[in-house]
């Protein structure tokens, strides 16, 4: 999982802040200038280090970088794949939320060694959901916020997402204000579309 996040971070920093900024981050951390490979295994410490270096280089707090990264993974110009794969979760945003519990198993079908944390979705009130990633690193909180915000946009839903204090791992509350607030972005099942 860290390889995927590192590669996504690489794409995000490169497109948003440019080659020079990314090369400075790599050289300060003594990482190879070719960057990170999405399918190679990395230690979680590598991600911590790259995030700390990025925070210093971009002069932004780590959670803010992670939330932007989450948004760019879905809505960014460099890779359409994560958004498409998540859209397979359901026709509407609520269906999509319900499909999140299956996400780690879906991901494992395609990439057995990929170890995504267990996700749990509870409906705690009408239109009010709580998403918990049990045992996951706390960095996942802001990253999920960014991803879910962008996915809500994609579905044309109006939501309010806030962090939720939970001892078991990063958690969010998701308040669905309006399921059909705007026109959803087109999603064709066939990849040619």
């Amino acid at each position: 999982m860290y390889g995927l996040i590192l590669r996504a971070l690489q794409g995000y920093v490169l497109t948003t802040f440019g080659q020079a900024a990314w090369q400075r981050i790599l050289s300060r951390g003594r990482f190879p200038s070719s960057g990170f490979e999405p399918l190679l295994p990395y230690d979680s410490l590598v991600l911590d280090q790259v995030l700390a270096l990025s925070s210093a280089e971009l002069d932004r707090p780590v959670p803010a970088i992670l939330e932007d990264l989450g948004t760019s993974i879905i809505a960014g110009p460099h890779c359409a794949a994560p958004r498409r794969l998540l859209r397979f979760g359901g026709a509407g945003f609520t269906d999509f939320l319900l499909s999140l519990e299956e996400l780690p198993d879906r991901a494992r079908l395609a990439l057995p060694e990929l170890d995504l944390p267990d996700l749990r979705l509870d409906e705690v009130g009408p239109g009010l959901y709580r998403l918990t990633a049990r045992g996951a690193p706390m960095e996942l909180g802001p990253l999920m916020t960014g991803v879910l915000t962008a996915m809500a946009d994609d579905y044309g839903a109006l939501v309010l997402i806030e962090p939720w204090l939970c001892a078991q791992g990063p958690a969010l509350t998701i308040r669905l204000l309006e399921a059909r607030f705007a026109e959803a972005r087109r999603f064709e099942l066939s990849r040619a579309g």
């Binding site: 999405p38 399918l39 794949a81 498409r84 794969l85 397979f88 879906r106 991901a107 079908l109 395609a110 990439l111 099942l189 990849r191």
Partner: peptide, 16 residues
Amino acid sequence: MELLYLAEANALVMGE
């Protein structure tokens, strides 16, 4: 949907 998802995810992994 699972089948289509899997086909697309597999193609993606193979591409990578």
